[in-house]
């Protein structure tokens, strides 16, 4: 088992490396380098830039060096000193800007995952066990419907419904009075009151997908001979269902974490933009629109790294629950 985990971790390293390259390419994509942009900016504001400052910054980011060296400098700074560079637009180090927002992104994604799993599994089971019943058709239709509605549309519609029907304005994760307050019980309650809507909005698409997968998996398992074997032992139908086919149908479901997680994080970003949540989404969009590339690149890098770690955890979980994978 330990060997399996180690092997997986070693496998993840090239992926991480590749992701960092992709993030760096994104940083490099806009024409010209940022100093040119920056200087144009400063010049337009009437400020003169000293030649020495420019030279010092060129030196710091290795802008005169070949591209691989720039990459090396960038990644080395991140790995050794946690230096993600500077946000030119906001004039602050990237690290100061992102951690808090990254934390909320992570929290929101985790809550969404829990919500998706907790709801999808029972519905999937019901749908499979009562195949071709009214409830199965309902679940199937709803699943297809929610798969067809993009996250941001769901967010907009939810906000419209909340404001037009319930007269509530939706947005943010806290009421104004709690935004800057320290954590307290009151703040927690306030958070819970705000967070459920984004969680549902982000989760519905993945929920629909998971219901379909759970249903298909379980239908597959229900027709396997070992179910007959267990029945021939005298086991009651409910115990049998949970102990055997459901247990086995969950395994492939765990492996879906590998793509549910990226989907949830993608959804979280775009929904956060619509609902103006204090997560990475709005910051990333703003950075991209302003071509604030160190900030944008760092965010993309960190989001991807989190996803890869999540996938790694799901791989390990799968091995824990399925001996066939463990013994390969």
């Amino acid at each position: 088992m330990l060997r399996f985990i180690l092997k997986r971790i070693v496998f993840a390293i090239p992926t991480l490396f590749a992701v960092s390259i992709i993030a760096f390419i994104i940083i490099q994509l806009p024409p010209g380098d940022y100093l040119t942009t920056l200087m144009a900016d400063w010049a337009s504001q009437g400020g003169a830039v000293e030649a020495g400052t420019v030279a010092a910054m060129r030196e710091r980011y290795g802008l005169d060096q070949p591209i691989y060296f720039q990459y090396y400098k960038w990644i080395w700074g991140i790995l050794t000193a946690g230096d993600f560079g500077i946000s030119f637009e906001l004039g602050k180090p990237v690290t100061e800007l992102i951690w808090n927002r990254l934390g909320f992104s992570l929290l929101l994604s985790l809550l969404t995952l829990c919500f998706v799993w907790a709801i999808a599994i029972p519905i999937g089971i019901l749908s499979a066990v009562r195949q071709y019943s009214i409830s199965d058709y309902m679940a199937t239709f709803l699943a297809f419907f929610f798969l067809a509605v993009p996250d941001f549309l769901m967010a907009l519609s939810a906000m419209y419904v909340m404001s037009a029907w319930f007269g509530q304005s939706v947005g943010g994760l806290f009421s104004p009075e709690y935004v800057d307050a320290g954590w307290s019980f009151g703040k927690l309650v306030d958070f819970a009151e705000h967070v459920w809507l984004p969680v549902v909005v982000i989760g519905l698409g993945s929920l629909a997908a998971l219901v379909r997968i759970m249903r298909a998996n379980l239908l597959d398992e229900l027709s396997k001979p070992y179910v007959t074997t267990a029945r021939a032992k005298g086991m009651s139908e409910l115990e049998l269902l949970i102990r055997y086919p459901v247990r086995l149908a969950l395994n492939p479901l765990i492996s879906t974490l590998g793509w549910i997680l990226p989907a949830v994080i993608s959804g979280e970003i775009i929904v956060s933009v619509v609902m103006s949540l204090p997560t990475t989404g709005p910051l990333l969009l703003r950075a991209l629109l302003a071509q604030d590339m160190y900030l944008a690149g760092s965010l993309i890098l960190l989001i991807s790294v989190l996803t890869i770690i999540g996938t790694l955890i799901s791989d390990i979980l799968l091995a824990l629950t399925d001996p066939r994978i463990r013994f390969q």
């Binding site: 992709i22 993030a23 990226p262 989907a263 959804g267 990333l284 991209l288 965010l299």
Partner: peptide
């Protein structure tokens, strides 16, 4: 196969956003 796995493990929206934002 490794390359495909890599592409699929990156959340799509930020990747698309990064690439699309670079269009002049």
């Amino acid at each position: 196969q490794r390359f495909i796995e890599l592409l699929r493990s990156i959340p799509t929206i930020p990747l698309w956003m990064g690439l699309a934002a670079a269009i002049p």
